[in-house]
Amino acid sequence: MTKEEMITWILGIEPAATTDDTGEWLVVQVPVDKWKNFAACIHKGPPALDFLFCLTAVDWKTHLCVVYHLRSSRTDETMVVKVQLDRDKPQIDTVCDIWRTAEFHEREAFEMFGITFHQHPDLRKLILPDDFNGYPMRKDFEDPVNMIKL
């Protein structure tokens, strides 16, 4: 599948998506409410992106952005999916029933950025202590005791 074919296919299943093929990999922006459906499609569909090799979030100060790096385990097709979230109340559907590796990565994003993943089986703090306050990877996080900023 070339990038052009992929874009046509993506726009076919999800007209609300925006694509960007200038970089190394195809970047797709998907609205939050369409994400779960879209994820199931790209996992099953012709590109068969069954390998979620990176899941992370970025704090853009105005909004949060969850970034999914996906590739196919058979072909070398790679796609980057970005989902923008509201910074005050970030919520998104979990994908750990599609890619099971997402379970741990989503827990990490949950505690570091405060993103709630709906229907996640076990959304608890993984790395931070249970009584930790704040979301340390956000840009406005300040910890006067344990300084991280240099």
Binding site: F53, C54, D59, H69, R100, T101, E103, H105, E108
Partner: peptide, 27 residues
């Protein structure tokens, strides 16, 4: 995996390390 987001400055805006052990542990 090393994921750098740059805003053009001398420091990265965001860095994510996709570490192999983290995913392997989840299995």
């Amino acid at each position: 995996g090393v994921y750098i987001i740059s805003e053009g400055g001398t420091t990265p805006y965001r860095i994510k390390y996709r570490s192999p052990g983290f995913s392997n542990l989840s299995a």
